[in-house]
Design a binder for these strands. Structure first.
Lengths: 114, 114
DNA sequence: CATACATACCTCGGCTTCCGAGGTATATCC
DNA sequence: GGATATACCTCGGAAGCCGAGGTATGTATG
């Protein structure tokens, strides 16, 4: 189980990154993420749907209802241009923080305490 | 400026990682982090001190008051054994999420949408 | 037909946590 | 004496996950 704050921080970049590969819908996104992360990253639908609605409200993704051959209604989401731009920003911010952590995890981060 | 949620997610692993290199105190931590990240990661003292208190309350770090040669009182923090263990957990969790993002940022993450 | 299960969507409220604003105090420099 | 850097602290507003609860349909089983 990942801490709540880490999920909160990663949910937006992960969502945008997934949809950058093509349109998808809520139920499928959860499964894809489960497979992709080999179970390390798990979202419940209580996490997913509010996020989708928020990102749509921000104009980063857009949705269209469609019906599968099986007859089920699905809400497909795809990235907008603004979403594409937002992904680039999210990616850079994540990598900034990651770079700091990687430095700190090296034997000599470039500073001396004590 | 990093989004609040990303700061929230990184503040604990970063803090523990800094103190893993040796003891330090609040004011110095902010400066070291500023230098280390080249300005990409900035904490205010309104962020830092509550975090230090929280981690101390969790038993992951411990503090001792001391006085510098200059005559200023400083509260030095150092990692406890529990803090060392918590750092390992935080590190693994961060890398789990990072691995997912890196996969998603590759041309072919290993799944097919649409 | 009745039951079970997977699919597929949604909302609400509690909980956690940063962080801006405001505060106190001391050492050094001009 | 005033400005600046050092060094600590607290409070409250705001943001966002996520467990629990809800609706609805397709398929398979006996």
């Amino acid at each position: 189980m990942l801490p709540k704050v880490l999920v909160a921080a990663s949910v937006k970049p992960i969502m945008l990154s997934i949809l950058a590969h093509g349109e998808s819908y809520g139920y499928q996104i959860i499964q894809r993420l489960h497979d992709l992360s080999e179970g390390t990253v798990e979202w419940t639908d209580g996490t997913l749907y509010p996020v989708l609605h928020r990102l749509e409200g921000e104009g980063l993704i857009a949705s269209t209802w469609r019906v599968s051959e099986a007859g089920r209604r699905r809400k497909y989401y795809h990235l907008t241009d603004a979403g594409q731009a937002a992904l680039a920003v999210e990616k850079r911010q994540w990598l900034d923080v990651h770079a700091v952590l990687v430095k700190l995890w090296s034997p000599n981060p470039g500073f001396q305490l004590t």
